[in-house]
């Protein structure tokens, strides 16, 4: 290859981000450029919140960022985190990209780097040792829940939030320091949740989706020949890449569900239609708050929300 991009990544080596998403990205850029551009993944160059600085200054050419790790910097990215979007992660990624192009981009929160894909993990669900079969049971539970939208929603549902880093989820549950965890379904295998959180309570669309972006160094992009730039823009960056990565998130969720169904003692409880409706009502108050917060940045948040919802429904 004429050009080898350096990818900086931070999740564990076995996580889908490193096991499947980067290989997919490399495959796509190689295919789009007839092998003239390739990339290699370097793990552990810096911690997750440092990735944007690394790319901005050219320490790496491409990276993945989780917007929740930089509170304050990213506000409009909360739009995809909202509860209530029903549909696959693939649909969510495509809708997210389109809403970004149409509305969210104006906030210019990724200034200094080139955004080449947007996606989110699947709707996070409550996973617990004791079975939870109704919304009311959530109140008073001690639950590991990440910050941002999820924290607000947890509080609205009456849960006691515990903040622990993701790798500590297993021991936190194993020791009963927490009763449950709100986490994407794809984590069931990686964190061995089938052993310590045998029950999963499924709300349509989940409690939140975590927002991710693939970012590229503007300088590294500018250094590529014009025909390569065009090929990448047309065949990889933006919607195609977002969709491909979204599909991998979806596949991870599907594997998590299959694993749960195949594991003795594990059970999936679907929320009743009444509970789902009531949840959507509670979620509505959180949504209103976030939409207001995002609108304060000057973008049309309501339009973005409607757009994501409609795009996903039409999938």
């Amino acid at each position: 290859a004429d050009h080898t991009l350096v990818i900086s990544s931070w999740a564990p080596p076995t996580h889908n981000i490193n096991a499947k998403m980067w290989p997919k990205f490399i495959e796509m850029i190689e295919e789009a450029t007839d092998g003239r551009v390739t990339a290699e993944v370097k793990l552990g160059l810096a911690e997750a919140p440092a990735q944007m600085d690394l790319v901005m200054d050219g320490a790496a050419d491409v990276s993945i960022i989780f917007h929740g790790y930089q509170p304050g910097r990213f506000v409009t990215t909360k739009m995809i985190e909202l509860p209530g979007y029903v549909g696959t992660s693939e649909a969510a990624a495509v809708a997210y990209w389109r809403a970004y192009e149409a509305h969210l981009k104006q906030a210019n929160e990724h200034r200094g780097v080139k955004v080449i894909a947007l996606h989110s993990h699947g709707g996070a669900q409550l996973q617990s040792a004791a079975p939870v079969t109704s919304l009311d049971q959530m109140a008073g539970m001690k639950v590991r829940i990440p910050g941002g939208v999820a924290t607000d929603l947890g509080a609205a549902l009456g849960m006691i939030g515990i903040q622990v880093p993701a790798p500590k989820v297993y021991e936190t549950l194993a020791s009963k320091a927490a009763d449950g965890v709100v986490i994407p379904i794809e984590s069931r295998a990686g964190f061995k949740l089938t052993e310590v959180a045998q029950n999963m309570y499924m709300l349509p669309g989940g409690l939140y989706r975590g927002s991710f972006a693939y970012i590229m160094s503007e300088e590294a992009f500018a250094a590529l020949p014009a025909d390569i730039q065009a090929a990448l823009e047309e065949k990889v960056f933006g919607e195609p890449l977002s969709r491909a990565i979204g599909a991998i998130w979806e596949q991870g969720d599907a594997e998590g569900i299959a694993l749960t169904e195949a594991t003795p003692g594990n059970a999936i409880h679907h929320a009743s239609p009444e509970d789902a409706a009531r949840f959507d009502e509670i979620a509505g108050t959180i949504r209103a708050k976030v939409i207001e917060e995002v609108a304060a940045t000057g973008v049309d948040a309501q339009a973005a929300y409607d757009m994501i919802r409609a795009e996903m429904a039409a999938w």
Binding site: Q70, P71, G72, R73, E109, G147, G148, Q163
Partner: peptide, 8 residues
């Protein structure tokens, strides 16, 4: 410039 703050 980016307005970074801690979570809680």
């Amino acid at each position: 410039g980016y307005g970074d703050v801690t979570e809680y």
